[in-house]
Design a protein around this nucleic acid. Sequence first.
DNA 1: GCTGCCGGGTT
DNA 2: AACCCGGCAGC
Length: 394
Amino acid sequence: PDPSFDSMACSEECPHLELKRLGRDPDTRSVSLLEQKRKVVSSSIDVPHARRSEEEVDMDKVTAAMVLTSLSTSPLVRSPPGPKSDSSPCHNLQVPSSGQSSGGYWSWSAPSDQSNPSTPSPPLSADSFKPFRVPSLGPGQGPNGPEDPSLEDQDGSSLLFDEPIPRKRKNSMKVMFKCLWKNCGKVLSTSAVPNRHLSTPGDATKDFYYTEIKLNTDSVADGLSSLSPVSPSVLSPPAPPPSPLPNVGHSDPHRPPQFDTKESHVGGTTPLSRSAPSALYLIHTDHAYQVSPHTQIRSVVGFTPTNSSSFSISWQSPPVTFTGNSMSPSKSQGFGEQRSQTIAVLSSPPRATTALSRKVRGEGKKCRKVYGMENRDMWCTACRWKKACQRFTD
DNA sequence: GCTGCCGGGTT
DNA sequence: AACCCGGCAGC
């Protein structure tokens, strides 16, 4: 059911793919024919479809990318091809709507990482994008059947906005693409396969499903991939890694990340890019958390003093209470509070002393003196009750 | 003596 | 809690 579903989804969701086909060159046609044949043979016709569409799209995208690049706006490039991708949920990985999230952003970091330590190569557009997308869609689409490596290559190239550079890198890098699709665990030299799968479900999904494995950069990538746990959702489910083997293994969509991680090879580029995003998220989160704590701590520390003053507050409360002693006429409260605070702090010690002897008599005039016995009604309650005057506190 | 207010009592 | 008052102490 999955395959059909995927195919359906792809075809339906990504009509633009078909459009692209039509628009495409003869090559595409040939490809489409092949795919169609496959469809006939296998129930998962869609898959090939997806692939074709992807390829086509990739091609288109590539072309567009080239044009755009020439124009000088790599990100924008997508937009041109984008219409197609944009229109449907299924974007090509290549097209990667970097725009979605921090596409450009990620692409950058991702590529570098992916490129792997040995050869830092700027061009990872494809890879970087994939990763991004992957996170976005995550697992969700149906499984796919086997794929064609040949196509993969194209896709990979297509993925790259700019040019062949990426390919070169990949080649030099020995980048392998592992399909993370449920049913497809194939490892291909090119990302085409995965892309196909991906194309079917959707861009993000695509990314999600295939993992690039670089022999050279394994360690690094792994680290990243591990970090990235792409999406919590993804990771969590995958708990059991069906087959860590790079070659085959239909892993759950979720898996992919793990695979990456598990596999030392883990996609240098793609994984990284993936991980990068997710990693970033995680990191951000972590930071956020950490920050929070830190901040809190800091605040605490910094405030501590202040708080200490607040301590005074707790302190104050006593004083306040103290104030209450005098009986609290509502009148003076606001007024007296501040004083009370100050007093509290200062007086508390003295107070003890005072207690012994007796509170020092207030110097200032009180209600009694101010208003006189005649106007006793004007006195503050405290004064009336022969208590400490609250109105004219010292 | 006047004043402020604590301590205690009454309601 | 509100009110009142005796009484002490500082001025």
